[in-house]
Simulated scan of single mutants.
Amino acid sequence: MSKTGMSKGGLPDLPPLREVVARHGLSASKALGQNFLFDEQLLDRIAAIPGKLAGANVLEVGPGPGGLTRALLRAGANVTAIEMDKRCLPALAELGEAFPGQLKVIEGDALKVDPATLFDGPWHVVANLPYNVGTALFTGWLSGKDWPPAWQSLTLMFQLEVAERIVAGTDSDAFGRLAVLAQWRACPRIAMKVHRSAFTPPPKVMSAIVHVTPAAMPEGVVPRMLERVTEAAFGQRRKMLRQSLKGLPGALDALEKLGIDAQRRAETLTVADFVAIARVLSPPA
């Protein structure tokens, strides 16, 4: 390990991340959806999005060589990082030595790890998610039965197109199942756009940071019923609701009860409309 001194602010004086990557012979793996960020100021800005993290528990997925991890540790967070690329573990171990007691690294697949088993109290998620698993992880965190969830906020890097689908409003081409899932009991926003040139290697598309906080859960709605309604409605989004929802028992009657024209298409409904349909169809508690 390279020797680490202390900066004037009392934080470890770390070697440049590019130097660490070169010393360990690391390169971004296309198979793992990796793209490295080296800009320390940009990484500090991302780590600041959730607010003060001093003493807070933070889950990071796919830390790679530890660029964002450094920023989170500098912010005072207690970081649990899940990394499946064995090549990156030595660089992360060096970070753990530089910030004693602040970093725990788990080698494995984040899709197979239950974050609830990692923390005693609430936690934040801050991650430059690998592109190939980002949406699956995100929908998993949003779909929990218990609400409010144990996580306090999600601060996640996505391809810009995916980020726009998460925050999309009604009557837009981007509005769909992902928007409803993200917005019916949470508040997502695009906190920052990140140019492709900030990454090594540069991806083919622009990226964005989405910040999500939990909101109140509407009463009388079974989450799985809302999923079934949106699956049916957006599964055939170019068709009228009377066609796309006819296979879902009671759905057309629910539209009539709510005064929603069955000749409309799914993207013309609001999140509140989908919640109302799901409420009518949800069995009483």
Rank of each mutant, 00 (worst) to 15 (best):
M1H: 12
T4V: 15
T4H: 12
M6I: 13
K8S: 15
L11W: 07
P12F: 08
D13P: 00
R18Y: 10
E19C: 05
G25P: 02
S27L: 12
S29D: 05
L32V: 05
G33E: 03
N35V: 07
F38Y: 13
D39F: 07
D39C: 00
E40N: 13
L42R: 12
L42K: 10
I46M: 11
I46T: 05
G51T: 00
K52P: 03
V58F: 06
L59F: 02
P63D: 08
G64M: 00
G66V: 06
L72C: 08
L72S: 09
L73I: 09
A75E: 00
N78G: 12
V79L: 09
V79F: 02
L89A: 08
P90K: 03
A91G: 04
L92W: 03
L92D: 03
A93K: 11
E94Q: 11
E97T: 14
A98I: 01
F99D: 00
K104A: 11
A110N: 02
K112I: 07
D114G: 07
F119V: 05
A127T: 03
N128I: 06
L129D: 02
N132H: 14
G134R: 02
T135H: 10
A136P: 03
P148H: 10
W151T: 02
T155R: 01
E164M: 08
E164T: 09
I166Y: 04
A168G: 00
G169P: 00
D171V: 07
D171R: 15
G176S: 14
R177F: 00
R177P: 01
A179C: 12
A179K: 04
V180S: 04
W184Q: 06
V194Q: 01
F199D: 02
F199K: 08
P201H: 11
P201G: 08
V205A: 14
M206H: 14
I209F: 01
T213H: 05
T213D: 01
T213R: 10
P214L: 07
A215N: 10
A216F: 06
A216K: 15
P218S: 13
V222R: 12
P223Q: 12
M225H: 03
R228F: 08
V229D: 01
A232C: 11
F234T: 04
F234K: 07
M240V: 01
R242P: 02
S244G: 09
L245F: 04
L245Y: 02
D253P: 09
D253F: 09
K257D: 14
L258H: 06
L258V: 13
Q263K: 15
R265I: 04
D273M: 09
I277C: 02
I277F: 12
I277A: 12
V280I: 15
L281F: 08
S282I: 14
P284W: 04
A285I: 10
A285W: 07
